[in-house]
Protein backbone atom coordinates (compact mmCIF):
# COMPACT_ATOMS: atom_id res chain seq x y z
CA UNK A 1 0.00 0.00 0.00
CA UNK A 2 1.42 3.31 -0.96
CA UNK A 3 1.62 6.16 1.50
CA UNK A 4 -0.89 8.61 0.04
CA UNK A 5 -2.42 10.18 3.10
CA UNK A 6 -0.67 11.17 6.34
CA UNK A 7 -1.80 9.39 9.48
CA UNK A 8 -3.14 12.55 11.09
CA UNK A 9 -4.66 13.83 7.84
CA UNK A 10 -2.22 16.69 7.34
CA UNK A 11 -1.02 17.85 3.95
CA UNK A 12 2.42 16.61 2.91
CA UNK A 13 4.08 19.94 3.61
CA UNK A 14 1.83 20.94 6.47
CA UNK A 15 3.32 21.40 9.95
CA UNK A 16 1.60 20.35 13.14
CA UNK A 17 0.11 23.32 14.97
CA UNK A 18 2.93 25.11 16.78
CA UNK A 19 3.42 27.98 19.16
CA UNK A 20 6.15 29.69 21.14
CA UNK A 21 6.50 31.86 24.21
CA UNK A 22 9.51 33.80 25.44
CA UNK A 23 10.49 34.55 29.03
CA UNK A 24 8.91 31.74 31.01
CA UNK A 25 11.65 31.09 33.55
CA UNK A 26 11.98 34.22 35.64
CA UNK A 27 15.29 33.38 37.27
CA UNK A 28 17.01 32.57 33.98
CA UNK A 29 18.78 35.19 31.87
CA UNK A 30 16.68 34.09 28.90
CA UNK A 31 14.05 31.42 28.41
CA UNK A 32 11.43 30.12 26.01
CA UNK A 33 8.88 27.42 25.32
CA UNK A 34 8.31 25.90 21.90
CA UNK A 35 5.51 23.45 21.20
CA UNK A 36 4.91 21.65 17.93
CA UNK A 37 2.08 19.14 17.93
CA UNK A 38 2.55 17.02 21.04
CA UNK A 39 6.24 17.85 21.39
CA UNK A 40 6.97 20.49 24.01
CA UNK A 41 10.41 21.96 24.67
CA UNK A 42 11.46 24.41 27.35
CA UNK A 43 14.80 26.16 27.16
CA UNK A 44 16.54 28.28 29.77
CA UNK A 45 19.74 30.23 29.19
CA UNK A 46 22.11 31.17 32.00
CA UNK A 47 25.08 33.37 31.36
CA UNK A 48 27.44 34.49 30.12
CA UNK A 49 28.94 33.56 33.46
CA UNK A 50 32.14 32.31 35.04
CA UNK A 51 33.33 28.95 33.77
CA UNK A 52 34.93 26.39 36.03
CA UNK A 53 36.94 24.15 35.97
CA UNK A 54 39.42 26.47 34.42
CA UNK A 55 40.78 24.11 31.80
CA UNK A 56 37.46 24.36 29.98
CA UNK A 57 37.88 28.10 29.50
CA UNK A 58 38.67 29.48 26.08
CA UNK A 59 40.61 32.76 26.29
CA UNK A 60 39.60 33.80 22.78
CA UNK A 61 35.82 33.52 23.14
CA UNK A 62 33.03 32.34 25.39
CA UNK A 63 31.84 28.78 25.03
CA UNK A 64 28.34 27.38 24.66
CA UNK A 65 27.11 24.36 26.59
CA UNK A 66 23.81 22.67 25.81
CA UNK A 67 22.02 20.11 27.92
CA UNK A 68 19.20 18.18 26.30
CA UNK A 69 16.95 16.18 28.59
CA UNK A 70 13.76 14.21 28.11
CA UNK A 71 11.72 14.00 31.28
CA UNK A 72 10.99 10.50 32.61
CA UNK A 73 7.28 10.73 31.86
CA UNK A 74 7.66 12.19 28.35
CA UNK A 75 7.49 9.98 25.29
CA UNK A 76 5.13 7.12 24.64
CA UNK A 77 4.45 5.99 28.21
CA UNK A 78 7.57 3.89 28.74
CA UNK A 79 9.46 5.50 31.58
CA UNK A 80 12.58 7.18 30.30
CA UNK A 81 15.49 6.59 32.64
CA UNK A 82 16.49 9.97 33.98
CA UNK A 83 19.95 11.35 33.45
CA UNK A 84 22.48 11.31 30.68
CA UNK A 85 22.48 8.63 28.07
CA UNK A 86 24.20 8.20 24.74
CA UNK A 87 21.32 9.70 22.81
CA UNK A 88 20.95 12.77 25.04
CA UNK A 89 24.68 13.41 24.84
CA UNK A 90 24.61 13.25 21.08
CA UNK A 91 21.64 15.57 20.82
CA UNK A 92 23.21 18.02 23.27
CA UNK A 93 26.28 18.06 21.05
CA UNK A 94 24.44 18.59 17.77
CA UNK A 95 22.26 21.27 19.36
CA UNK A 96 25.40 23.09 20.42
CA UNK A 97 26.76 22.86 16.90
CA UNK A 98 23.46 24.01 15.43
CA UNK A 99 23.37 27.15 17.60
CA UNK A 100 27.03 28.14 17.71
CA UNK A 101 27.31 29.49 14.13
CA UNK A 102 24.86 32.32 14.87
CA UNK A 103 26.28 33.28 18.26
CA UNK A 104 29.02 35.83 18.72
CA UNK A 105 30.65 35.10 22.06
CA UNK A 106 33.91 36.92 21.33
CA UNK A 107 32.98 39.59 23.85
CA UNK A 108 32.95 37.01 26.62
CA UNK A 109 36.37 35.32 26.80
CA UNK A 110 36.71 32.59 29.45
CA UNK A 111 32.97 32.63 30.10
CA UNK A 112 30.21 30.15 29.38
CA UNK A 113 26.63 30.32 28.20
CA UNK A 114 24.59 27.39 29.47
CA UNK A 115 21.46 26.27 27.65
CA UNK A 116 19.19 23.78 29.37
CA UNK A 117 16.54 22.13 27.22
CA UNK A 118 13.86 20.11 28.97
CA UNK A 119 11.15 18.12 27.24
CA UNK A 120 8.09 17.32 29.34
CA UNK A 121 6.27 15.77 26.40
CA UNK A 122 7.58 14.33 23.15
CA UNK A 123 6.11 13.08 19.90
CA UNK A 124 9.14 13.05 17.56
CA UNK A 125 11.04 16.09 16.39
CA UNK A 126 12.28 16.83 19.90
CA UNK A 127 15.76 17.96 18.95
CA UNK A 128 14.25 20.39 16.44
CA UNK A 129 11.81 21.74 19.00
CA UNK A 130 14.71 22.06 21.44
CA UNK A 131 16.75 24.07 18.96
CA UNK A 132 13.80 26.36 18.19
CA UNK A 133 13.21 27.01 21.90
CA UNK A 134 16.91 27.50 22.62
CA UNK A 135 17.24 30.01 19.82
CA UNK A 136 14.43 32.14 21.25
CA UNK A 137 15.92 31.85 24.73
CA UNK A 138 19.36 32.97 23.53
CA UNK A 139 17.88 36.03 21.84
CA UNK A 140 15.87 36.72 25.01
CA UNK A 141 19.12 36.60 26.97
CA UNK A 142 20.32 39.55 24.88
CA UNK A 143 23.24 37.77 23.23
CA UNK A 144 24.72 38.85 19.91
CA UNK A 145 23.30 36.65 17.18
CA UNK A 146 23.42 37.00 13.44
CA UNK A 147 20.12 35.21 12.94
CA UNK A 148 17.57 33.01 14.66
CA UNK A 149 17.87 29.25 14.20
CA UNK A 150 14.77 27.33 13.19
CA UNK A 151 14.62 23.58 12.89
CA UNK A 152 12.23 21.03 11.48
CA UNK A 153 12.25 17.27 10.93
CA UNK A 154 11.61 16.28 7.33
CA UNK A 155 10.74 12.69 6.48
CA UNK A 156 10.79 10.51 3.44
CA UNK A 157 8.01 7.95 3.55
CA UNK A 158 8.16 5.65 0.56
CA UNK A 159 8.46 8.16 -2.28
CA UNK A 160 6.87 11.09 -0.47
CA UNK A 161 8.67 13.93 1.26
CA UNK A 162 6.72 14.95 4.35
CA UNK A 163 7.30 17.92 6.61
CA UNK A 164 7.36 17.65 10.41
CA UNK A 165 7.10 13.92 11.09
CA UNK A 166 5.38 12.74 14.23
CA UNK A 167 6.14 9.58 16.18
CA UNK A 168 3.72 7.40 14.27
CA UNK A 169 5.28 8.38 10.97
CA UNK A 170 8.77 7.99 12.37
CA UNK A 171 7.93 4.38 13.29
CA UNK A 172 6.41 3.60 9.86
CA UNK A 173 7.98 0.43 8.62
CA UNK A 174 7.34 0.63 4.90
CA UNK A 175 10.52 2.64 4.07
CA UNK A 176 11.19 5.76 6.06
CA UNK A 177 13.99 8.27 6.47
CA UNK A 178 14.01 10.95 9.14
CA UNK A 179 16.01 14.11 8.44
CA UNK A 180 16.18 16.78 11.15
CA UNK A 181 17.29 20.07 9.63
CA UNK A 182 18.22 23.33 11.34
CA UNK A 183 18.53 26.42 9.22
CA UNK A 184 19.14 30.12 9.41
CA UNK A 185 15.86 31.35 7.97
CA UNK A 186 17.28 34.52 6.45
CA UNK A 187 20.08 33.01 4.41
CA UNK A 188 19.04 29.36 4.23
CA UNK A 189 22.38 28.18 5.66
CA UNK A 190 22.21 24.77 7.32
CA UNK A 191 23.49 24.29 10.85
CA UNK A 192 22.12 20.82 11.50
CA UNK A 193 21.58 18.02 9.02
CA UNK A 194 21.18 14.47 10.25
CA UNK A 195 19.65 11.41 8.71
CA UNK A 196 18.20 8.20 10.01
CA UNK A 197 17.25 5.75 7.27
CA UNK A 198 17.99 5.58 3.58
CA UNK A 199 17.77 8.52 1.25
CA UNK A 200 18.69 9.23 -2.35
CA UNK A 201 20.65 12.32 -3.28
CA UNK A 202 17.63 13.64 -5.12
CA UNK A 203 15.36 13.17 -2.12
CA UNK A 204 17.84 14.96 0.12
CA UNK A 205 17.65 17.99 -2.14
CA UNK A 206 13.86 17.78 -2.03
CA UNK A 207 13.95 17.52 1.77
CA UNK A 208 16.11 20.62 2.15
CA UNK A 209 13.86 22.51 -0.22
CA UNK A 210 10.83 21.48 1.87
CA UNK A 211 12.59 22.58 5.05
CA UNK A 212 13.14 26.07 3.68
CA UNK A 213 9.43 26.78 3.55
CA UNK A 214 8.71 25.29 6.98
CA UNK A 215 11.56 27.18 8.61
CA UNK A 216 10.17 30.51 7.41
CA UNK A 217 6.88 29.76 9.16
CA UNK A 218 8.63 28.77 12.37
CA UNK A 219 10.83 31.84 12.36
CA UNK A 220 7.79 34.08 12.20
CA UNK A 221 6.39 32.44 15.34
CA UNK A 222 9.75 32.72 17.11
CA UNK A 223 9.96 36.39 16.23
CA UNK A 224 6.42 37.02 17.40
CA UNK A 225 7.12 35.28 20.72
CA UNK A 226 9.99 37.67 21.43
CA UNK A 227 8.03 40.69 20.29
CA UNK A 228 5.07 39.74 22.48
CA UNK A 229 7.29 39.53 25.53
CA UNK A 230 8.93 42.90 25.00
CA UNK A 231 5.86 44.67 23.65
CA UNK A 232 4.11 43.41 26.78
CA UNK A 233 6.82 45.11 28.80
CA UNK A 234 6.08 48.36 27.04
CA UNK A 235 2.46 48.53 28.11
Amino acid sequence: MAYEQRFDGRGMTELRPFKAKAGIVRRADGSAMFQIGDTVAYAAVYGPRDLFPRFLQDPSRGILRCHYNMMPFSGSGERIRPGQNRRAKEISMVTEKALLPVLDLSEYPNAVVDVFIELPQTDAGSRCAGICAASIALADAGLSMKDMVSAIAIGRIEDKIVVDVNKKEEDYEGGMADIPIAMLPRTGELTLLQMDGELSKKDLARAIEAAKGAVKEIKEVQRQALKDKYEGDRK
Partner: peptide, 23 residues
Protein backbone atom coordinates in the same frame (compact mmCIF):
# COMPACT_ATOMS: atom_id res chain seq x y z
CA UNK B 1 20.60 43.21 9.65
CA UNK B 2 19.83 43.19 13.38
CA UNK B 3 22.51 41.42 15.40
CA UNK B 4 20.62 41.26 18.68
CA UNK B 5 17.27 41.81 20.31
CA UNK B 6 16.43 45.42 21.00
CA UNK B 7 14.83 48.68 19.95
CA UNK B 8 15.80 50.26 16.68
CA UNK B 9 17.17 53.76 16.72
CA UNK B 10 17.43 55.64 13.44
CA UNK B 11 19.58 58.75 13.52
CA UNK B 12 19.95 60.25 10.10
CA UNK B 13 21.57 57.55 8.00
CA UNK B 14 22.74 55.41 10.90
CA UNK B 15 20.63 52.53 12.17
CA UNK B 16 21.50 51.00 15.51
CA UNK B 17 19.94 48.82 18.18
CA UNK B 18 19.38 49.78 21.78
CA UNK B 19 19.60 46.51 23.69
CA UNK B 20 16.66 45.54 25.92
CA UNK B 21 18.16 42.49 27.59
CA UNK B 22 21.50 41.03 28.48
CA UNK B 23 24.02 40.92 31.24
Amino acid sequence: VAGRLGLTSVQGRAVKIIPLAGK
